[in-house]
């Protein structure tokens, strides 16, 4: 034990206070931008594209990659590496393929700030926009995963009971978002990307003194894992979700489509000029590589060094406080907390913006005849800010019931969203006969089937469930598209495309 725990606690608390002060300062500078709905959501054009790229990567990497997936690696061994490989490789390739098209379409529609709005414009359908904004509420479970991650850190590092840890976690998250807004989010997420990268690199560097073996450090790690259980070093794990070639391919399919998550696509919409996409995509790839592929190895090392943890999700916090001097451990713990906050703020912003922008602003004029556009805009921002607290309390309530695996719960939430929106977004680019009826049916089919498959154990593997639900969603959309696309529709699409 290298760490004196009361000194560690106070070091972490003081670093956090300085860090929050810095965010408050940035937030004050950005306040002028967040008075309108578009400014609240994207802070468009005010931030360097290199920083937006780092911010994209920091938002991508949440409690799932910093706590949850290392926890899976602790439990199941090297077959989990297929997941993090996809997080860098397949997701980056996906970003490179989709970024330009999504951005061009977004520009064509004028100022849009959210994915439901994008879909609403592409398919000329308010109903679709409202439907997808409701689907994004699945992100509440994603937020729950972040709360659980924070509570696990507080429990492992400071000894705060889990129940109080979740309350503290939600409180600091809400305060953090209240201090900033989107402008602060872009700047601070970029800074957090750097902090997270340093934390990730330190984890791997520390293997030289915790695992040993000099340059053969990974050979040493492999040997010691195999000594515990040979299944821990297999390519395809007998236990755990990575237990067949099909499942591993389905993981890659999931991670390829993951960049279509609304809170990530919003980042692309904040790029101002087309030539800015080049530095943005390159910086996103470089930062994503460092912060998504290294942390998981810490979970493997923790299995060798601390084989008797009560919760696999505690692998990384335990490894950090046992392997580093107090001051460095405190900085790394703050690095992990910032990894969680940088995703949570984007998730909250995505959910609340959708409620304000795509739900309230679309539906309110139906009930309040004669409301002026200015009034509507002001009320939408108010609703979005109120939704922030409601979503926080809702996620807190769900967090009290601790999940077995943080990672599996987070993956459930985003798979449910992706199963629904994958077909409408991708067919929306490539296919002239993609109609609004097809898109609405595809959203309902994909998400509902995913929930049915996983909740009733129709398909036990969560990755295969997502793959087959998406497949059904594509099939429904194509069949309905063929039946409902008529001459008038094709003309409309052509008119929009030119």
């Amino acid at each position: 034990m290298l760490v004196d725990s009361s000194f560690l606690q106070w070091t972490i608390i003081s670093i956090l206070i300085i860090y929050f002060g810095y965010i408050f300062w940035i937030g004050k500078r950005g306040k002028v931008h967040s008075q309108s709905m578009v400014g609240f959501a994207t802070a468009r054009g005010k931030v360097s594209p290199l920083l937006v790229g780092a911010s994209f990567a920091a938002t991508y990497s949440s409690a799932n990659l910093f706590i949850g997936v290392p926890g899976l690696a602790y439990e199941y061994g090297t077959s989990v590496l297929w997941y993090t490989l996809g997080c860098f490789g397949v997701s980056w390739v996906g970003l490179l393929i989709f970024a330009k098209m999504f951005w061009r379409y977004g520009k064509k529609f004028g100022k849009i700030s959210t994915v439901p709005e994008w879909l609403g414009r592409r398919y000329n359908s308010k109903a679709l926009q409202v439907l997808v904004s409701l689907l994004i509420l699945f992100n509440v479970y994603y937020i729950v995963g972040q709360n659980v991650g924070l509570a696990t850190i507080f429990e492992t590092v400071i000894g705060i009971p889990y129940f109080w840890g979740t309350i503290i976690g939600v409180t600091i998250t809400i305060v953090y978002i209240g201090l900033g807004g989107a402008f602060a989010q872009m700047i601070t997420d970029g800074v957090q990307g750097v902090l997270m990268a340093i934390t990730s690199i330190l984890i791997v560097v520390s293997f030289f003194w915790t695992i040993g073996g000099g340059f053969n450090v990974f050979g040493e790690l492999t040997d010691r894992l195999a000594a515990i259980d040979p299944d821990l070093i297999s390519f395809i794990g007998e236990n755990g979700p990575y237990n067949s070639v099909m499942a591993i391919l389905a993981v890659q399919f999931l991670l390829f489509s993951f960049i279509l998550m609304p809170h990530l696509l919003n980042k692309i919409l904040s790029i101002e000029k087309e030539e800015d996409l080049a530095p943005f995509t390159l910086s996103a790839g470089a930062v994503l590589f460092v912060i998504s592929t290294l942390m998981v190895l810490g979970g493997l090392a923790a299995r060798v060094l601390y084989p008797n943890l009560s919760s696999p999700d505690a692998a990384i916090p335990t490894y950090v406080i046992e392997s580093f001097p107090t001051i460095i451990a405190a900085f790394m713990i703050v690095g992990i907390i910032s990894a969680i906050l940088s995703s949570t703020d984007a998730l909250y912003l995505g959910v609340t913006t959708s409620i304000g922008n795509d739900f309230f602003r679309v539906l309110a004029p139906l009930f309040k005849k004669g409301i002026s556009p200015e009034q509507l805009e002001q009320q939408a921002v108010k609703v979005a800010k109120g939704a922030l607290v409601v979503v926080g309390l809702w996620s807190l309530y769900i967090s009290f019931d601790r999940p077995d695996s943080l990672s599996i719960m987070i993956q459930f939430s985003f798979s449910a969203i992706l199963s629904g929106i994958l077909a409408p977004i991708s067919l929306g680019y490539f296919w002239k006969k993609a109609t609004n009826y097809g898109a609405i049916a595809a959203v309902i089919t994909g998400s509902a089937l995913y929930v049915v498959f996983t909740q009733f154990n129709v398909i036990e593997n969560i990755y295969l469930a997502m793959f087959f639900a998406s497949l059904a969603s594509f099939a429904v959309m194509i069949v309905i598209g063929l039946f409902t696309a008529n001459e008038k529709h094709s003309e409309l699409v052509l008119k929009k495309a030119n």
């Binding site: 090297t78 490789g89 390739v93 492999t222 995509t281």
Partner: peptide, 27 residues
């Protein structure tokens, strides 16, 4: 498996950069 992991990461770096150079890099 860990060595394969690093090799595959390198492979994705190269293929990602190839796509980037083709579609994004200023000519």
């Amino acid at each position: 498996m860990i060595l394969t992991y690093f090799l595959l990461i390198a492979f994705f770096w190269l293929s990602g950069l190839a796509i980037w150079a083709k579609f994004y890099k200023k000519s």
